[in-house]
Design a protein around this nucleic acid. Structure first.
Lengths: 97, 97
DNA sequence: TTACAACTTGTCAAAAGATGTCTAAAACTA
DNA sequence: TAGTTTTAGACATCTTTTGACAAGTTGTAA
């Protein structure tokens, strides 16, 4: 499940209008619309507010958001998988410290 | 091995001055210095030129460069590993198509 | 159909970030 | 010390991101 889809489906499940979510996130309704369509990426602060507004686990949402950043960095590259694996290895060895 | 370290060690192995590498990459010497110190990230075009100038395998250099982008996206996050793994999963399923 | 509400789209300006150069200082070498 | 290489800081420029506004489209109910 992609971030934009998750946000949209959650909003609909909760029966909220774009306007209501926009209010809670403190941005224009149009921006929420774009985020749900995948035209815009939410900022980190917006992710936090969206998690609250839509009652989504924050870590889950953050993970998804970060993973899409990562995905965009490498998508289309022929070395995409290698690059991600290398980054993963680095993170893992760093965490051990 | 980190990108900046690789670039520096390769240059030194080849006995080149910053000025000479800068010439081949077509930028100011100071910029190469910063890149080797990790203060600046090379652009993609610079990566290509650096690979030629320093006789480094292009794919290897590109992989390293991309992996550092990924690393920076998630480093310091408590969900860093999950985010990377999720991105990896998405890339893998996409490649299959 | 009309009227209204919900949602979407295009465009703009401001803010934020990236990029490259210049100058001068620091570090190194002979 | 003199000359060379490397580094640091400041700055201008360029690009990207962000958010708002207005106008458009879609959907719904009478």
């Amino acid at each position: 499940m992609i971030l934009s889809e998750l946000l949209k489906s959650k909003r609909e499940t909760k029966g909220l209008l774009l306007r209501e979510v926009a209010y809670k996130v403190d941005v224009d309704t149009a921006l929420i619309s774009k985020i749900e369509k995948g035209d815009r990426k939410p900022t980190r602060e917006q992710i936090e507010k969206l998690a609250v507004a839509l009652d989504i686990d924050y870590n889950k949402l953050l993970t998804l958001w970060l993973s899409e950043k990562v995905y965009e960095d490498v998508q289309g590259e022929n070395v995409a998988i290698d690059a991600i694996k290398l980054a993963l290895k680095r993170i893992k060895t760093e965490v051990k410290k």
